[in-house]
Simulated scan of single mutants.
Amino acid sequence: MVIQAQNHKYINADTRLYNEATTNDGFKGYFKVNARVEVLSTQTSDWVFVKADNDNTGYVQSKYLSVKYNSNQNIVEDSDNPILNGDNYYGGHHLFVTVASLRARGEPNLSGEIRTILTMGEPVRVKYIPVEKDAWVNISDNRYIQRKYLNERPSYDALALSYASIEKSNTNERLKIAERLVELAWNSGYTYLKSAYLVLLDVATDTNNTALIKSTQMYLTLADGLEHPLPSEMVTSFIEDASFKIKGVQINKQMADLNTVIDTYGQPIKMENISDECGVYYSSTFYHYKNMTLSVNPEENLAEIVDIILDENSVFIMNENSIIDHTIIETEFIKLYSKYIRTSIQDLHTYTIFNDYGGYNIVFKNGKIYSVTVFNLC
């Protein structure tokens, strides 16, 4: 056996991670093409001892290892490999989360730091999948979940039938399935969203959960707007002349006189140069104030708003008839603008209004307006 310095290689076709240097002694998991492995040692000319991205170790035939990423589209696939190819939900190799509010951890164990919360029906990147159900899967960026919570995309209709079969007195189970329906609906476009929230409202009403009733009613309004949005040209027209007013100073098209800003707010708390490869900002020089960030060009004496925390000194003027100030609450905002906005379960409480070149992210915290971020598309 030859011990090698640490190096990495790519799997060049569907294959498996074997227990021993033979195909006759069982295997630990499945690889998809371009999975990255760490080479630990070379056993023979035909077999290499490797570590997968979830720290599983085992053997791979050397013919399936390449130094470079494989762009060949004509790859022989393993029909038993459960990892899915790209589809309408995810462009690369993936599987779907099959439970609600799943914690992804920073290490492959239950003691690992919680990195993110995943939702029912959410697609996640998978390049290696272990066979053992309790084993851990690296879903990118060293975020791990257990194998038993990944599978093909769940069926909304099947889950709805499951909910309908639950005894009405079994409120805990009804709530669990209702929450799964809501998450799955969010990850299925907006078609099922209203029906899912109606199911959740049914449970909330039966249990007299006033907080859940209130939030669900808000989301029902949101779901209706998301399912029946206004035409994009109408939304663009609605927002095309948006501006801000800060301490009485009108800022049209997000551009302000830099000297006026400094006279009003003083020198920034922090100045920095950022990387802007796409050129989406007016300048790569950023001025940070307590309640706003500006992209500035001192030579031209101009500053462009990047984001602003709305307070008693600032308002966001979407148009002359639609002015957002620090007093607006989330439920009222949704009632007024649900047909103009887009959002997702990953960014709940952040609502996007698009224009021709980007748009605005309007953020709420604890039911109250928090900030507005201006963004341009790359």
Rank of each mutant, 00 (worst) to 15 (best):
S41M: 12
T42W: 02
T42P: 03
T44W: 08
T44L: 04
W47S: 08
W47I: 08
V48S: 09
F49N: 12
V50H: 08
K51L: 11
K51Q: 14
T57F: 03
T57P: 00
G58T: 07
Y59E: 03
S62W: 02
S66V: 08
V67L: 07
N70Y: 01
Q73A: 08
V76P: 05
V76R: 01
V76E: 07
E77P: 01
D78I: 05
N81A: 10
P82N: 07
G86V: 06
G86T: 06
D87G: 13
N88G: 15
G92R: 09
H93Y: 09
H94Q: 14
F96Q: 02
T98Q: 09
S101P: 00
A104L: 05
G106P: 00
N109F: 06
G112P: 01
E113W: 09
T116H: 12
I117N: 09
M120C: 14
M120S: 03
P123V: 12
P123G: 14
V124S: 11
R125N: 12
K127Q: 04
Y128I: 05
I129K: 00
D134Q: 06
A135H: 01
W136E: 00
V137Y: 01
V137I: 04
S140K: 00
D141N: 06
D141E: 02
R143N: 02
K148P: 01
Y149W: 08
L150P: 11
L150S: 01
N151A: 15
R153I: 10
P154T: 11
S155E: 02
